[in-house]
Design a protein around this nucleic acid. Sequence first.
DNA 1: AGTTGGCACTCACATTCCGAGAGTGCTAAT
DNA 2: ATTAGCACTCTCGGAATGTGAGTGCCAACT
Lengths: 350, 350
Amino acid sequence: MSHPQLNERSLQLLKALIERYISDGQPVGSRVLAKDSDLKLSPATIRNVMADLEDMGLIHSPHTSAGRIPTVSGYRLFVDSLLTVKPLELQEIARLQGGLARIEDRGQTLEAASRLLSELSQMAGVVTLPKREMLYLRHIEFLPLSHSRVLVIFVTNEQEVHNKIILTSRLFSPAELQQAANYLNSVYSGRSLAAVRDAVLKELQDDREQMNQLMLDAIRMAQLAFEPEEKKEDFVLSGETNLMGFSELSDRDRLRSLFEAFSQKQGVIHLLDQCMKADGVQIFIGEESGYEAFDHCSLVTSSYSVSDEVVGVLGVIGPTRMAYEKIIPYVDITAKLLSAALNPKSASPS
Amino acid sequence: MSHPQLNERSLQLLKALIERYISDGQPVGSRVLAKDSDLKLSPATIRNVMADLEDMGLIHSPHTSAGRIPTVSGYRLFVDSLLTVKPLELQEIARLQGGLARIEDRGQTLEAASRLLSELSQMAGVVTLPKREMLYLRHIEFLPLSHSRVLVIFVTNEQEVHNKIILTSRLFSPAELQQAANYLNSVYSGRSLAAVRDAVLKELQDDREQMNQLMLDAIRMAQLAFEPEEKKEDFVLSGETNLMGFSELSDRDRLRSLFEAFSQKQGVIHLLDQCMKADGVQIFIGEESGYEAFDHCSLVTSSYSVSDEVVGVLGVIGPTRMAYEKIIPYVDITAKLLSAALNPKSASPS
DNA sequence: AGTTGGCACTCACATTCCGAGAGTGCTAAT
DNA sequence: ATTAGCACTCTCGGAATGTGAGTGCCAACT
C-alpha cells in the first residue's frame, strides 16, 4: 500500500510535532523533529511521514519552506488519543482549594473561580452564572412599589438573592402581599425554580374551583415572577487581557472580533450552554465551536454542580496552541472545587 | 519683542491646526494650514507662527519633515478657550430621550446610558454605579440563614435591591428579625444611607439607657448592614472594542495596559470619583489623568444626580485626538437624560 | 520495501539602497 | 512684518539582494 496510513510511528511523530509546536510556537521542520522524537530516524524519513500526515489533513505548512503546524483535525486527534495529561499533585490541589473555599458571597466565589482559571492558565477564564432553573427556592417576598408595580425578591440556595419587578393586574395592599408570600413560602419553599414554575402552571390550569382568592392571587404573582427570562444569563470573564499577548491573536481584526464577542455575551453563552450537557471536560478547537470570532481559539470546559445537579459551566479560552495537558486538569479541578465551594456545607460537628 | 507671544492670530491658527488634526489624524503642515485657515497668509508666515507655538509647547512635530501635532497643553488650551461646541438639535435630543426613558430596571438604565455614549461617540462609554451613600432607604428586611448568618436585603430609590450577609453576635428567631426590620423601617425609611449610618452610630454612642433590647439589636444589625464597603464600587463600560480601531491606541502594549486598567476597575473608579466633585463637563487629556494606562486617552465626563444629589459620573473614553466639540455635548446631554430617567417620576396626571 | 544521503529548488525574511515627497528653517528681498 | 526662494532633513515605499530554513524527489543502500 502506498496509501497514507496511521501507524504507530506516524502517530508518535504527530504527537512529538504538536508538543514541539505548542511549546515553541514555531513551525516544526523535519530536522528538529528527528532530534526531538525518540525514534532513530533520519530527517528524510520524517519528511516522508510528514507528507503522509499532510495528505491526511492533520498538519500543514504555512508556506513552502517552513516546517509544519497542526491543523484543527490534528489537534483533535492529539487531544482525543495522544494526549498524556499529568494529574495535579495533591499539594497543589490543597493550595487551590484554599483560595476558593469559604467565600461568603456567591458572586465573589464565581469571580474567584474565574480568576483562578485565568491565573493558572495565563489565558482567559470564564464561569457561567448558575442556571436559575436549577436553583431551589428558599424564600420569596413581595414589596409594593408605586402603582401596581411589585418588587419580587427571592432567595435561593442559602445565599443568592434575585429580584424582579412585576406588574400586577390590580393594586395589592402590603398585608395582601405578605399573605401571598407566606402562602407561596409554605407550599413551594425547597423546590427548584423549574419545579415551582411547572407546579404553578399546573395549578392555574387544573382546579380553579377549590382555591380561594388569596391563593389564586399568589399563584398568579408567582407565575409572573418565575417566567423564564432569556436575557438574564451571564458569565464572569477574567484575564481577557492575557489573550492580547499571543501572536496568533494579536491581529487587530481577530482580537477585535473576539473581544466584541465577549461583550455581546450572547454568542459565548450559547456556546457554553452546549457544554453543559456533556459531563467531564469538553474541548472545542478552533472552528469547531462554529463561532467565527473563536476561529483561532480553543475552549476547554467542564460543568459544575450544586446538589448533584449541573447548574453551570466554566472553562479556559486561549489560542488553539495551548498546553492542553496542563489546562485540562486545571479546568477539571477548578470545576470540582467550585462545586464543592457552592454546595451546602455538609453538617460539620463543631 | 522677538519673544513668542499668544496674539489673536496665533490662537486662530492653533485652533485651525487642531481642528484639522482631529479630523485628519495627519500632522498638519504650513501649506495646508495656509489654505485651511481664513487668514490670508503665506506658508512661510505660518511657519514662523508655528515655530512660536512650538516654543510655547503647544504643538510639536514628530520628526523633521512632518507637520505639527498638538501637545497636551495645546489640547488643553484648545478645549478651554478656543473650542466652539455645537449644541444639539432638539430633535436629536428627543430621539435620545426615547432610548433612555422608561426602562424599568435600574441596572439596565445605566447600561443603556453607557451604550448610548459609546454609540454616539464611536468610542468607549462609561457610567459609574450610583454611590450607595447617596441613595435613600426605602425598605429593609432580614432573613435568617444557617447559624448566626443573616441576609440583609434593602431596597433604595423605588427600584434598587441590595443585599449583604452579616454575622450576628447571637442567633435570632425569624420573629425577632421581623420585629427588628419593622423598627428600622419605621424609623429610618426615607433617609439616605449615609444619614442612616450616622444616626445609627449616634444611637449606639449616646443613650443606651432608654432603649429596649429589641431596638438595640436592630440598631446593631443596621450598623453591620450599612458599614461602608469599598469594594462594591463599580462601573458599566461599553464599546471598549471601538478603541481598538484607533491607530494611536493600537500599539499592543498600550492597548493591553488600557484594557487591564478596565478590568482592574480600581484605578478607573478612582479617576472617575475625582470627576464627581466638579459639576458640568470635565475633561482629562492624556497624561493629565495621572494614570499611565490613560496616557494616550482623553476622558470627558459629567456627573449625574438623583433628587438633586450628585450620585455618579458618566463619560466617554477615547484617544486624545477626538472631536471634543461633539463629544462634550453628547456627554452633557446623556448625563441630563440619565438624571431625568433615574429621578422619581413627577406625578403624572393620567 | 523501507530508509537514507544528496541535491536542486522555493520561499519568507531581513537588509540595503535608492527616489520621491513633504515640510522645515533660514535668508534676503519687499 | 511678510514673503519668496532655496538648501536641507527625514520618512516612507518599493526594488533588489542575499541568506537560511525546509522541502520534495531521486537514486543508492540495507
